[in-house]
């Protein structure tokens, strides 16, 4: 039985903000199915009482002293942006236009 359907792949692409084509959905559905069936092997391990590891280094918050340090200028920060205006990143409209 397939682990993942064509519809699920289309849904994942939407969640991932990927405007995939129909041909890609066909291709990826088969490939993701093979991959997911293979990685599902982690389920064979009996690990109910095993704590998860997110990181090999024990993580604690690392804070620095609250001292002003040199940083990028606005021009440097915007230099790689596809579009900038008045010292800011310019983005396409976010809300639907008023009727």
């Amino acid at each position: 039985m397939a682990a993942i359907s064509r519809e699920e792949v289309a849904h994942l692409a939407r969640l991932s903000r990927l405007a995939v084509t129909d041909q890609e959905i066909d291709l990826f559905a088969g490939q993701l199915d093979v991959i997911l069936q293979a990685v599902a092997r982690v389920g064979e391990v009996v690990a109910e009482d095993i704590p998860p590891t997110s990181h090999s280094v024990p993580l604690t918050n690392v804070l620095r002293d609250d001292v002003v340090q040199p940083c990028l200028t606005p021009e440097e920060a915007l230099a790689g942006a596809p579009d900038a205006e008045e010292g800011r990143f310019r983005v396409p409209r976010i809300l639907e236009e008023e009727a």
Partner: peptide, 26 residues
């Protein structure tokens, strides 16, 4: 709108293996 531009940008800018991994991770 922003979301559509974002989806078109990522569709065009990422290759197939990167897309596969993003979707597996999602």
């Amino acid at each position: 709108a922003l979301e559509e531009v974002m989806s078109l940008t990522r569709e065009s800018g990422f290759g197939a293996e990167v897309k596969r991994r993003i979707m597996i991770g999602t």
